[in-house]
Simulated assay, not measured.
Amino acid sequence: MYRISELAEQVGLSRTALLYYEKQGLIKGRRQSNGYRIYSDHDVQRLRLVQNLLAGGLTLKECKACLDARIDRSLLQNRLQQLDDEIQRKQASRQLLAALLGEGDLSGWHQSVDSVAPDAHREWLVRQGFAEKEALRLKWLSKDMNEHEQYMADFMTVFATLDRWGPGSEADTLKALAMVPHAPKKILEIGCGKGIATTLLGEHTSAAITAVDNEESALLRLSERALEAGLADRIETVCTSMTDMPFAPESFDLIWCESSAYIMGVENAFTAWHSLLQPGGILVLSDLVWLTDAPTEECKTFWESGYPDMGTVEQRLSQARSAGYQLVDTFAVSEDAWHAYYQPLAQRVEEIRPERKHSQALKDLDKELAIYRNHLPEFGYQMFILKK
């Protein structure tokens, strides 16, 4: 026979727990004449059995039901499914922690977080030691902070010798410029890259141009191009993020952004850049949009991962109106603009493939090239000419 303190020591439970178990009818003590409660070996064994059932994930109530009657198989099946679900969640948690320690792939996690909390995600990456430029690159390119350095090294090797870093053509740039209803005096070009559009704007206007990009090497090439074209006195380069530009309100009468507003989110760009325009100023912006209501599954899956915020022309126009713009005109960028970007890109990828056979950056570019070759009519860039 055991007093409650002895029983507690025997089964490794507290006195309070044993009293609760007794209240639930799992054990039954016998009170002696001296007032002490005593318990039998049967109670010890019953408690051992309860502990084993609890280890299987059952509640005390379910344990009692199993002890007092035949096992309810449906109850056990339900509990088993709950445990399987919990194990799956725990495994996902473990995989995330391991990946954060550099022992796994983080790309899916980064994409998932960015889809629901893009600003907080970017701020978190900055706190992990990434400069904002690298945080934005990680978001759109490598998608895995553990592999980011090698990924970007391969990526920049591909693009270092390419003039265009996105779809575009001189004809489309000039077509959009012809739709601007006034002769601009102060132009801000955001995401200027190596300055192909910048040079055209300089050659076809008399405006002072401020060209912004966060890649210093691209701005150096732009400066060379401006010097060659005799435009160096009218083109100023600024290396900064499009999310934090150091310009006063109403500084420009024309803002130009081809193929890069997605970096901060087009809707965010509409709002953030509105204040930089003078009253009646013009925003010219191109963005990737769906050109069909029923894209193929392969194309849809690719862009849902690559550009989750991709919308339709009408969705972008609705966002522009909400941000305080009026539509001047809009048109679909020509297929020549795509060819001018992707054909040199495909050639460059093949040039460096032998020395980077296992590069994830090249694998991702291969996927993008395949989408371009097989699905281009389903999507395209749309040029928007908007008035403040």
Rank of each mutant, 00 (worst) to 15 (best):
G29M: 06
G29N: 04
R30L: 03
R31D: 01
Q32F: 00
S33Q: 14
S33H: 13
Y36Q: 09
R37H: 09
R37Q: 05
I38W: 06
Y39F: 15
Y39P: 04
S40K: 01
D41L: 10
D43S: 00
D43M: 00
D43Y: 03
V44H: 02
V44K: 03
V44P: 00
V44N: 04
V44F: 05
Q45N: 09
R46Y: 05
L49W: 03
L49K: 07
N52W: 11
N52S: 15
N52G: 13
L53A: 05
L53Y: 15
L54C: 03
G56H: 07
G56V: 07
G56E: 08
L58C: 01
T59L: 06
L60H: 06
L60F: 02
K61I: 06
K61T: 14
C63T: 01
C63A: 07
C63R: 01
C63L: 05
C63I: 00
K64W: 08
A65C: 05
C66A: 09
C66M: 10
L67S: 07
L67H: 00
D68F: 03
A69P: 03
S74Y: 07
L75K: 07
L76S: 00
L76T: 01
L76P: 03
N78W: 09
R79K: 10
L83W: 06
L83G: 03
L83M: 11
D84R: 10
D85N: 12
D85M: 13
D85F: 14
D85W: 13
E86W: 13
I87Y: 02
I87N: 07
I87E: 12
R89C: 06
K90R: 14
K90Q: 12
K90E: 13
Q91D: 13
A92I: 08
A92G: 08
R94Y: 08
Q95C: 03
L96N: 00
L96S: 05
L96V: 07
L97A: 06
A98L: 15
A99I: 01
L100V: 08
G102Q: 02
G102D: 03
G102P: 06
G102W: 06
E103F: 14
G104T: 04
D105R: 12
L106W: 10
W109V: 15
W109D: 11
W109K: 08
W109A: 14
Q111N: 10
Q111T: 13
S112Q: 11
D114H: 08
D114G: 09
D114N: 13
S115V: 01
A117D: 10
A117Q: 09
P118G: 08
D119N: 12
D119A: 11
D119Y: 09
A120W: 00
A120Y: 00
A120K: 08
H121V: 06
R122T: 15
R122I: 15
E123Q: 14
W124I: 05
W124K: 10
W124Y: 12
V126G: 07
R127G: 08
Q128E: 12
G129F: 02
F130V: 02
A131C: 11
E132Y: 15
E132I: 15
K133H: 13
K133E: 14
E134H: 09
E134P: 13
